[in-house]
Amino acid sequence: MQNRLRVRRRIVAATTVAATLALAGCGGNVGDQKSEDDASFPDRGITLLVGQDAGGSTDLTARAVADPADSDLKQTITVLNKPGANGALAAKELAGAKADGYTLMVFVGSLSYITPLAVPADEAVDVNDYEVVTGLSQDDYVLVASAKSGFKTVKDIVDAKKAIKYGTTGVGTGSHLSQALLFSQAKVDATAVPFDGGAPTLTAVMGGQVDVASIQLGEAQPQIKAGKIAPLVTFAEKRPSYMPDTPTAVEAGYDVPVQQSRAIVAPKGTPKDVVVRLRTAFQKAFANAEYKDFNTQRLLTPNEVDGPTVIDQWTAALKKYRDLTGQYKIDLSED
């Protein structure tokens, strides 16, 4: 409902602008109305593309940050879902949009640093082809084991010396990559069983259909607390504040930091001052208490860094994963 209202408001705003321009034209005013008057940015609503379905983690993050950023920009930010191919479809649309700061997108890091390992080169998306406005947050993965398997640590799996089945949230996802790397390094004979998203994977590991699975913290936490599944390691760089007692994979001796990261990006060539103006608005949103609560409830770790830092992080991640998958001869597109 709110969304529709916003759309309508946008249309009204657009009509008003058009009418003003038309009137100006009639008056014989030849003065350039559409000057590069960036001080007035934004003078109309902004569209924030989301490459995932409404209601998912990325969508909710977009909505949570759009609300407070709205009030600073004094314009509405409309969230528009264009799901498909892990966001590649929306990224393509963004690349074709006018580089004026009125079309933005919530970009998932995995699209830039994991998907390229699984899809043909011409379908891979490179974040360097976009203007990153700001980093948002990171979502960590935790390796959980079913109660039936009895595993409590990665060492238990190695010591068991038997073939295991691991559930992933899909082929070419962080969940898949993290476990493929871990089990290659630990020399465990493991078969990936891909599911369609977090909830089915969680269900499978709870029901003992697979031995272990790598799932995002927010989804796994309630079941861990209830003792239905056991956390073995997280794939975070350092222990997430939400799970202080679970070691990271690096601590357990395996070099596999894998995270989902999210950032707001604009088309390449968006004027610098527009990007700066947007970043200021989002920084104000990050300080908003409701947005902070949102991060805590979803167990997200803020990564509110600037554009160049995001690009550095993601480029480094892609290089690292390329090296590691090459070293251990892992092919994400064939299992």
Partner: peptide
């Protein structure tokens, strides 16, 4: 219903 509820989420806050 899924999309509708997602859109209405801010209101439920």
């Amino acid at each position: 219903p899924a999309a509708t509820i997602a859109i209405l989420l801010p209101i439920t806050l």
